[in-house]
Write a protein that binds this DNA or RNA. Sequence first.
RNA 1: GCCGAUGUAGCUCAGUGGUAGAGCAUUCGAUUCGUAAUCGAACGGUCGGCGGUUCAAAUCCGCCCAUCGGCUCCA
Length: 611
Amino acid sequence: MVQQPAAVEQNSPSAAPISLPRTSESETLKKIRHTTSHVMAMAVQRLFPKAQVTIGPWIESGFYYDFDSPEPFTEADLKAIKKEMVKIINKKLPVIREEVTRDEARRRIEALGEPYKLEILDDIKTEPITLYHLGDQWWDLCAGPHVESTADLNPKAIELETVAGAYWRGDANRQQLQRIYGTAWETPEQLAEYKRRKEEALKRDHRKLGKELGLFLFADAVGPGLPLWTPKGTLLRSLLEDYLKKEQVARGYLPVVSPHIARVDLFKVSGHWQNYKEDMFPMMAEDAESAAAEQGFVLKPMNCPFHIQIYKNQLRSYRELPMRLAEFGTVYRYEQSGELGGLTRVRGFTVDDSHLFVRPDQLADEFLKVVDLILSVFGDLQLKNFKARLSFRDPASDKYIGSDEAWNKAESAIRNAVATLGMESFEAPGEAAFYGPKLDFIFRDALEREWQLGTVQVDYNLPERFELEYVAEDGSRQRPVMIHRAPFGSLERLIGILIEEYAGDFPFWLAPVQVRLLPVGDDFRPFAEEVVAQMRLLGIRAEVDQSGDRLGKIVRTAEKEKVPVMAIVGAQEVENNALSVRTRSAGDLGAIAVATVCDRAVAANQSRTNF
RNA sequence: GCCGAUGUAGCUCAGUGGUAGAGCAUUCGAUUCGUAAUCGAACGGUCGGCGGUUCAAAUCCGCCCAUCGGCUCCA
């Protein structure tokens, strides 16, 4: 029987790869998607005359348009809308740009009865106002650019994808609109490739792979957003923890441990209670009286106040600083139900937290050291696709504590560090913590959603609130500065991102099972067990396949479980004290002496490279 | 929290008002096997939960829970 190996994809090398630029990378796509969103809005208003238009921009993978419609759009509606769009496109309507005065624009919008458009008009500060017409049948306030005619759109390269609720102006207190997401390309081939890649991305989803690989689970009986870790998943966590702990010990960090709950007062002093009371699990009060007086215990949403207490336990000398207190601390946050998802957003998670208490003159240097550690961690984990975000305060908001002076100092410390390192980064006003600005490291998951992993924060405010001090050289009492930092951010989110980044194929040093011995028959089991025992003594995570299935099946099982090294044991191997090695990455390597396999595995573990 | 969709065996999924199904997994038996599925049998389900409509509900309706997509939020 001839078998087609399932893992071998049927590539046709002659076909040129289809490129799928993001919208911002292609002027053509910008126009196509912009115009397509107008065509969709026109189609919607033809089919649903009560629907009011709002905004409809392009996004990196397509476009959307928000409507205020009395009835939500259904799947069937999307089909009808698409059909109507095809009719419009086939009319080959010219897309005509018109410039009008503000008053004229206002007059026309009022004639249409489109209140949202009026609000948008009020926000446009420049004149003239540009309108774009689709033939003489429909127009929208728009800055453009657009294609010249709907004939430039290919109906077979357009797809309406989903409907979602979205708040007007992104404000949860305002009207919720119906958003239709769609995508549009130059050719049907591009659309097909886009859909294929989306399918591929779903296969990398850490929720799917985590289940398949048996790393973690969620149980209804436990609660939403509260992951349970299996032995394999726990092993992975431990490997990551051990790795970072080692790096931190080498850099002078001091491990500490704090409890999961504390008096609510602790978080009143820090300010967390005032800012995040609603996002914390409810307070545990002993009786109604205590509850009324807001006296009780809370699950910790942050580790910093605990580490601060450890710092405060003694009068500290300037000689002790910088003091770097580190803890893998599990925190609990009552995230909104609609926000939960897999490991990337959970209600209980472990922060690779550390708080550095430094003298002001040590801040710049210490900050650089932290960034250096974070970048080296990402390097060791082979994480390359991230952005550095300078999360500063929003000058218009009053949610921040502390003086302008402290904020300015902290923000410029971060700016300087980034400049010193020559790191590519972008500033994001409004993304700061309430107590200080941050340097955040943003990653993308398989579905292109962005998540913050690593973070470094400069904080002048909590030292103030907790009245931290140290004794300076001259005997005076001085206030230290705090750096909050977490290279992983959260172990849960990191693992979610890692699973997707590796597509479940962990590098050798992180694979929960590194070597699986596959006995060809039961006779060879004792030898396999001996080899496993030998490997385990060397710190190699090895095991024997216990199923008793035939070789083809146990190879398949090991492949599906993404075990990096398979070692087949039969008569020849026993005789020669060897293993027939098959790796996931390179396939059949042939017979290799047991000792050599062990050496290679140990070396791979030490150097964090492939087997 | 909001809008929408989904929820059937451990997993992946069929089943549109009339006695709950398949494949895989598991267990048992046979097979002792050489690089992605050996054969056979058995086991396995308050059809997410509660309530309603109906002679009859996995199927229709309501509420709740959970998951998924999006919005808002994210110390």
